[in-house]
Structure formats: structure tokens, C-alpha cells
């Protein structure tokens, strides 16, 4: 093709276009219609998913009056940041945000450490007894004691109404153990273990200085899964915590967004209306503030996340 263009002396636009069309494999007419429908369908998916998100974001940047009057659609009306001011002036929300950061960071560290500690030995073929242990671990996926029996255990070990209640009882995810184990098994060749042993490298040192550096991509995926789970969960806080100072952001969100509990007594009618309008606006801003950390990192990690799902799916 490149030879052709070089040797051609007088390239007329029309000839070139016709040649390009001829070079392409012509698809039948029905196929082109079909493809058009496919694009249309995808566009519909795109719009349906994006529209509510856009609506929320646009509302969050509008003025309280515009939101209450229902004038906002997919673009901010009377641009204002008052919703965000209200969010960051609310001590409950700020406290919840800080709590959630704590739970997410500490919880992820604990979870990843525990997951590696169980998954790595499970991946070593020379470890006798690993099949029994793995079966016992997998069984917990099929059958659980249930809400109350678990609650009683958490109560009896004294975790109730402490920060650790959100970290310890959910520390290990069986799914993540499967992902980690599969990765260790496939990405770390047996020959490497043997070579290290010949050089007098113990199992722990091998894990620390060879396996973990090699498994960094997988560890990142597992850590992200734990972090997102921790950031997004509210159920454990709902059942294990009574003290509002310990509430994670999601539980604060639930109280404000769904139960409609915002503090402050009524003074007079106009103040009440203003407060109501601001409370409405605050919800939109709050949704944005709560989801931003996750949605900002998401585009960068989506690919790895997908890989993680697939590693786990290869062998259950």
C-alpha cells in the first residue's frame, strides 16, 4: 500500500477515496444496520448510567433555591458552593469522614496482612495439610452461623462498640484469599523456591524479599478491594456501634440522607424554609463528597480490578 502511494504521481482525492473503500472489507447492509443498533444501544446504556450521576453533581453545585424549585437538570443553576460549605461545617460528617479514613487505612492493612499470611502457606505445594485447611476456609463461603451467633461472638470477645468491631470481624475475605493463593501459585515458580532454599533462604525471608515484591500488582488489587469494601460498608457499624463518635461516614450518611435527621430546632417560618432548602442541597453535596474518593481512584484501578476478579474466577 505504501509502495502504491509513493509511485503514484498525481493523486486525485476521488481515486484515493475509492481505493480506500475498496480496500476495506465491505460489510453486508444488514450488518451495518445491526452495528448501528449496537452503537445506539451502548449510547442508551451510557446515558442511563450517566444521567443520575450528572443530575446529582449538577444539583450539588447549585443554589439551595434552585434545587428546591426543581430547576436543576444536568448543569448547575445559580452556581454556588453552599452545599459543600454546609457539608464541611457539619461536625458529624467531618467526624464520620475521619473515622472512615481510619477504618479504611487500618482495616486494609490488617486485612491484607492476614490474607497474605494465610494465602501464601496455602500456595506452597510441599505444605502438608493445606488441602484440609483450604476446604475448611472455603466451607465458610457456603455456610455461615448467621447474624445473631456472629453478633454474640463479637460481644463475647469484647469488641462491641469499639473501633475494632469494624476491623476485626470482617478482616479476611475468602474471595481475596482465593485470589492471593491463585496468584502466588501461578506467578511464583516452584524453581524459585527451590533455588532460594538451596541458597539457605528461609520461608519467611523468601516470602518477604521475593514473593511480596513479585506479587505487588495482586496485593494492590486485594488492598483496593478491601479498602473500597471498608469505605462503603455500613452494616457492621449499624449492628456493632452505639457511640455516634465512632460512626463511619456511611452510617452518618444513612442517618442524614435516608432517615432525614439533621440537628437544630425550628425558629421561625422563613428560617425553617431556608434550613429545609439547605438540608435538601446538603444531601446532593454529601453524596458527591462521600463518593469522590472512590470514583477518583476508580478509573486508574479499574483495569487491575478486572484482573483481580478474573484471577479469582479462574479456579474457585
Amino acid at each position: 500500500m505504501s509502495v502504491q502511494t509513493e509511485t503514484r504521481t498525481l493523486p486525485s482525492k476521488r481515486v484515493e477515496r475509492r481505493a480506500a473503500r475498496a480496500r476495506r472489507i465491505r460489510e453486508p447492509r444488514t450488518d451495518r444496520i445491526f452495528l448501528f443498533c449496537v452503537y445506539l444501544l451502548l449510547a442508551v446504556f451510557f446515558v442511563i448510567v450517566l444521567a443520575p450521576l450528572l443530575y446529582i453533581v449538577a444539583s450539588s453545585f447549585s443554589s439551595p433555591e434552585a434545587v428546591s424549585a426543581g430547576r436543576v437538570l444536568f448543569w448547575p443553576v445559580d452556581f454556588s458552593l453552599r452545599g459543600y460549605h454546609a457539608v464541611f461545617e457539619n461536625p458529624q460528617i467531618v467526624q464520620g469522614y475521619l473515622n472512615s479514613l481510619f477504618y479504611t487505612v487500618v482495616g486494609t492493612i490488617v486485612s491484607v496482612t492476614m490474607t497474605i499470611a494465610i494465602a501464601y502457606p496455602m500456595s506452597r505445594r510441599t505444605l502438608v495439610g493445606r488441602n484440609v485447611v483450604m476446604t475448611a476456609i472455603l466451607f465458610t463461603m457456603l455456610f455461615t452461623g448467621g447474624l445473631i451467633p456472629t453478633y454474640l461472638v463479637v460481644q463475647s470477645v469484647g469488641l462491641l462498640d469499639t473501633r475494632w468491631a469494624l476491623i476485626i470481624p470482617q478482616a479476611i475475605g475468602v474471595w481475596q484469599v482465593i485470589i492471593a493463593r491463585t496468584y502466588f501459585r501461578t506467578a511464583i515458580p516452584d524453581e524459585l523456591v527451590e533455588a532460594a532454599q538451596l541458597d539457605g533462604c528461609g520461608d519467611l525471608r523468601f516470602l518477604w524479599s521475593v514473593v511480596i515484591p513479585l506479587a505487588k500488582p495482586m496485593i494492590a488489587v486485594v488492598a483496593l478491594m478491601y479498602a473500597i469494601m471498608q469505605w462503603n460498608s455500613y452494616f457492621d457499624a449499624l449492628i456493632y456501634l452505639k457511640n455516634p463518635d465512632l460512626f463511619p461516614l456511611q452510617l452518618v450518611l444513612r442517618n442524614i440522607l435516608i432517615l432525614n435527621t439533621t440537628g437544630g430546632g425550628a425558629v421561625d417560618a422563613s428560617v425553617v424554609i431556608q434550613r429545609q432548602q439547605l438540608a435538601d442541597l446538603l444531601k446532593y453535596s454529601l453524596i458527591v463528597v462521600a463518593s469522590v474518593p472512590v470514583l477518583v481512584i476508580y478509573p486508574f484501578v479499574a483495569r487491575y480490578f478486572t484482573k483481580g476478579i478474573l484471577i479469582g474466577a479462574v479456579k474457585g
Binding site: 443520575p52 462503603n232 455500613y234 440522607l257 463518593s291 476508580y298
Partner: peptide, 17 residues
């Protein structure tokens, strides 16, 4: 990217929305 995104939003936020 867009269709995958809501998966990362929390249940509380989805219900609120």
C-alpha cells in the same frame, strides 16, 4: 468506564440517589 463506575458507589449512596 461509565457503566462500570456505579459498582464502586456505596449502597447507602445508591439508595439515597
Amino acid at each position: 468506564l461509565v457503566t462500570y463506575a456505579p459498582y464502586f458507589i456505596s449502597t447507602v449512596v445508591v439508595v439515597s440517589m
